[in-house]
Structure formats: C-alpha cells, structure tokens
C-alpha cells in the first residue's frame, strides 16, 4: 500500500493538485531567473548606452539605428552569413554522404570509422582552434606542406593572416569538427527508414539513385530539417573558433569577425552593454527569420 493511500481523501486530492507545480517549479524558477529575466533585461538595456551596468543613458532606438550604419556590424553579419552558408551547405551533403557510406554493409570496420569521424567533436572548439592554428602555419605548417606537394600552393600562404583565406580556413576547420557529428544524426535516420520501401522500389525497377531520391531522402527529411536548423543556428553563434584562431582582432581586416564576437567585444571589451544587447536582439531576430524561411522552404511546417 502506498503512503498516499493512508491519507484522507481531501488531503490526497490537495497533494495531487499541488504535486505537478512542485515538480515543474525548479524549471520555472530557473527559467524565470536565468532565462526570462535576462531576456527582458537585455531588451530594456538595448534602449540605453551604458558604461558597464552602473552608468546608462536612455537613447531610445538609437542603438538599433546605429547598428544599421555600423560597418563593423555589417562586416560581422556578412562574415557570419558567409560562414553559415558554406559550412552548412558543405557540411550537410558531406555528413549525409559519409552516413550513407558508413551505413553500407560492404564497408569494413564501420563501427571504428564512425567513432573516428565523430571523435573530432568530442574535443571541443578551443582544442580544435589551437590544433588548426598550428596546421595552418605558413612555410612550415602541415596544410601548406601538403598543398605545396600536391598542388604547388606557395608555402608561405597565410591562411590566418590573409583576409581572403581566413573564412575558408574557418569553414575547413568547422567541417573537420562537425561533419562527423552530423553524420551520426543521418546514420540514425537512415537506419530508421523502412526496409520494405526499398524492396518495393526495387520490385518497381528503381535503380540506386532513384531509391535514394524516392525513398531515402523523404525518409530522412525530418532529421535533415532538424540538422539544417541546428547547424544554421550553431553557425550563427560561432565564437570560440575565430576567437582562438584569430584572437580578439578577429584576424586581418576583421575577416573572421562574427556577430557573437562583435557582441562580446562591444559588451565586455568596450563596456557598452546596451549596444551589445541590441546586437544580440538583431541576431535573435535574424535567426528567427532564417529558421522560419528554412522551415517554410523545406516543408518543415507540414505535419505527418
């Protein structure tokens, strides 16, 4: 007999009515303190110019107006968009291709290969940033040595000092880190596709390519949309990689400056928490628009 059964009916009813609130209370309290309050506070702050939290002057929408003409914010937005575009649109096909490969029965040592491709994600962005900073070193770095041997690329190619090469270097680094990670999602999705559909397709005379288009892709669509969204959001929040690889200056000509880096610089280096809040809200707004557009284009709103 449970302890509750020993209580009078009225008390039991009361306890059952209160219990759900008690159990959701930790989340609600944490969300209100660390989620809702900072959100509201940052929205309020975005209407002020501040010098830290002590001094602030109300400026209305001036921060947002300044953003629209701020060349550094434009640069950060452009860089972030370019990084997102290339990293997502290279990452996803590569991840899917790798997943298809490692899902095939004829590949030997699949389990080991899956672990090997996933493992870069385990070490974290700071480690990866340090590692690739060394690999990209001109004259003596492994990447230049390899490219020089294979394609006669000059040994003193400055990946992290040439504004034109900084973004490709960041995208390459992120590919190494995330392709294997996204591969795991695709692998799970591939294994969930109903095998009978392939059999039916084969009976109907579909070749491998047609099976991929007609069975595999529709089958993994929900996961693909999820991966696309998460990769896009993750790319928009890029911070550690350029910070570690390029430093506070974000590399030559600020070619590695991302929106979150700019937010950090304005908020925590310059001390203008108000302007940083405005940058943060613009980022949130941008992400919302891009995510909605992606869901609309990919049919993510459709149910079933």
């Amino acid at each position: 007999m449970a302890a509750n059964d020993l209580l009078p009916r009225a008390k039991r009813w009361n306890a059952q009515r209160v219990a759900p609130y008690v159990f959701i209370a930790p989340f609600v309290i944490l969300f209100l303190v660390f989620g809702a309050y900072p959100l509201i506070k940052s929205l309020v702050l975005s209407f002020y110019i501040t010098n830290g939290p002590k001094s602030s002057v109300f400026v209305g929408l001036q921060n947002f107006a300044f953003l629209l003409t701020d060349p550094d914010f434009h640069k950060a937005t452009r860089n972030t968009a370019i990084y997102t575009f290339w990293s997502v649109f290279l990452q996803l096909p590569l991840s899917l291709g790798l997943a298809l490969l490692l899902n095939a029965r004829w590949v030997r040592g699949r389990e080991w290969l899956r672990l090997a491709f996933f493992s870069p994600h385990l070490v974290g962005q700071v480690f990866v940033g340090v590692l690739f900073s060394v690999l990209f070193v001109p004259q003596y770095g492994l990447i230049n040595q390899a490219l020089h041997a294979v394609a006669d690329v000059p040994l003193d190619t400055r990946w992290l000092a040439n504004p034109q090469l900084i973004m490709p270097a960041l995208v390459l680094t992120s590919l190494w880190m995330y392709v294997g990670f996204n591969m795991v999602y695709f692998l799970a999705a591939l294994q969930a596709v109903d095998k009978e559909l392939y059999e039916a397709a084969r009976v109907d005379g579909a070749n491998s390519w047609q099976q991929f288009w007609a069975v595999t892709l529709p089958g993994i669509r929900p996961v693909a949309i999820f991966v696309l969204l998460m990769s896009t959001i993750g790319s928009f929040q890029l911070f550690e990689l350029p910070w570690v690889m390029l430093g506070r200056s974000a590399g030559a000509d600020g070619a590695g400056l991302t929106i979150v880096m700019y937010l950090y610089q304005t908020g925590y280096v310059s001390g203008d928490l108000g302007y940083a809040s405005a940058v943060g809200w613009m980022l949130a707004l941008g992400l919302l628009i891009v995510s909605l557009a992606q869901l609309r284009i990919t049919g993510g709103f459709k149910t079933g």
Partner: peptide, 18 residues
C-alpha cells in the same frame, strides 16, 4: 618585408634567415 607569425615558426624563420 614579410612575416610568418610568432612562436615556433618565428624561431624557424630567424634560424633559416627568412
């Protein structure tokens, strides 16, 4: 003028007379 960077690469560059 040119440069290659700091740290170990700088050491190599000075030693090599780059």
């Amino acid at each position: 003028g040119s440069d290659l960077g700091g740290g170990q690469i700088f050491t190599r560059a000075v030693e090599d007379g780059y």
